[in-house]
């Protein structure tokens, strides 16, 4: 009997590794190997054409003194500071609105979700038209309230704000679904008990709902941060980084260095710096949320 069991187990081990072979090989070739290569490349002046040599930490020294890198950092930081809170609040607000199991709520959930389904490029093309200073729907709508809308994508002061608006519009539906799932887990007895105690809607939310959905908030915050640091599509399609580099983001800059000017060594160093930034923020976010949950 025990021989039969160990035979099945050996059989299972062999089958398991065969079943896992393709994903594991792809993992090694397209994740493990590239991460090691990125570190190596960042220490060279590899530029596709011609010979390349080992330059040590020169690329990193160059980054510190690269004024355009710092412009990209500032733009990405501005985008993150505006996009992350706005994305979180809109997702939470809409989820709270739709947190009921009626047929109508389900219909509206679908309608709210529709922008998520379209690609960033399609969304950008739509907003390119919406944001047209003369013929765009947004400025027309602002005009009804007597507001003279700006030229949006053509003004360096407004271009990034326009991109943030578009990104929130395009992405909140997905996070709303995560929040809706989390809100199902909020204990109804607690909410009722707090209401009976005379707690207002905001106090109920703050002391009962908010702690129960803290895990979802952490997940969404992490997703938003990682997405914000890597923003590219919108800036590439709508403004090509302009006007006057006002929407040049870090990933855009890496793309431009690596594939526009083929400075792949330098681009690798830049992407490694961005990777470390993302890592630091993810860990800090996990720590902060962990501490709040311990309290």
């Amino acid at each position: 009997m025990s021989a039969a069991v160990s035979a099945t187990r050996r059989q299972q081990t062999i089958s398991a590794w065969i079943f896992l072979a393709v994903p594991v090989v792809l993992f090694v070739i397209f994740l493990l190997l590239p991460v090691v290569m990125a570190i190596g490349l960042s220490l060279t002046d590899y530029a596709v054409i011609g010979d390349f040599e080992w330059v040590g930490l020169d690329n990193y020294a160059r980054i510190a003194g690269d004024p355009i890198f710092w412009v990209a950092v500032r733009n990405t930081a501005l985008y993150t500071v505006l996009y992350v809170p706005a994305g979180l609040l809109v997702a939470l607000g809409t989820a709270l609105l739709l947190n009921r199991s009626t047929r109508t709520a389900r219909v509206f959930r679908t309608l709210f979700y529709i922008p998520v389904v379209s690609s960033t490029v399609a969304t950008a093309a739509i907003w390119f038209w919406l944001l047209n200073p003369q013929y765009g729907l947004l400025n027309a709508a602002l005009g009804w309230f007597g507001i003279d809308g700006p030229a949006w994508l053509y003004e360096s002061r407004w271009a990034m704000i326009a991109i943030v608006l578009m990104s929130v519009w395009a992405g909140f539906g997905a996070n709303m679904i995560i929040y809706l799932g989390a809100l199902q887990g909020v204990p109804g007895e607690l909410v009722d008990a707090a209401r009976v105690d005379g707690a207002g809607a905001f106090r109920v939310f703050w002391h009962v709902t908010r702690p129960s959905i803290a895990r979802a908030t952490f997940l969404i915050l992490t997703l938003l941060l990682i997405a914000a640091f890597q923003v590219f599509d919108q800036a590439y399609v709508l403004t090509k980084g302009g006007p006057g580099n006002s929407t040049l983001t870090l990933v855009y800059y890496i793309y431009d260095r690596g594939f526009g000017r083929l400075e792949m060594g330098y681009a690798s160093a830049l992407s490694f710096v961005l990777f470390l930034v993302i890592l630091v923020f993810s860990v800090a976010n996990a720590r902060a949320t962990g501490r709040e949950n311990d309290r």
């Binding site: 398991a16 896992l20 994903p23 594991v24 993992f27 070739i29 397209f30 994740l31 190997l33 590239p34 991460v35 290569m37 990125a38 490349l41 990682i226 640091f229 890597q230 990933v251 890496i254 793309y255 690596g258 594939f259 792949m264 681009a267 690798s268 992407s271 490694f272 961005l274 990777f275 993302i278 993810s282």
Partner: peptide, 26 residues
């Protein structure tokens, strides 16, 4: 089994940007 699963799970956290240039070269 646990190791393979953790590796796949962890790899989802690696931002795509770090592998962009090397993947092109691969």
């Amino acid at each position: 089994r646990g190791v393979v699963f953790s590796l796949f799970l962890g790899s989802m956290m690696v931002p795509g940007i770090i592998t962009m240039v090397p993947t092109f070269l691969v």
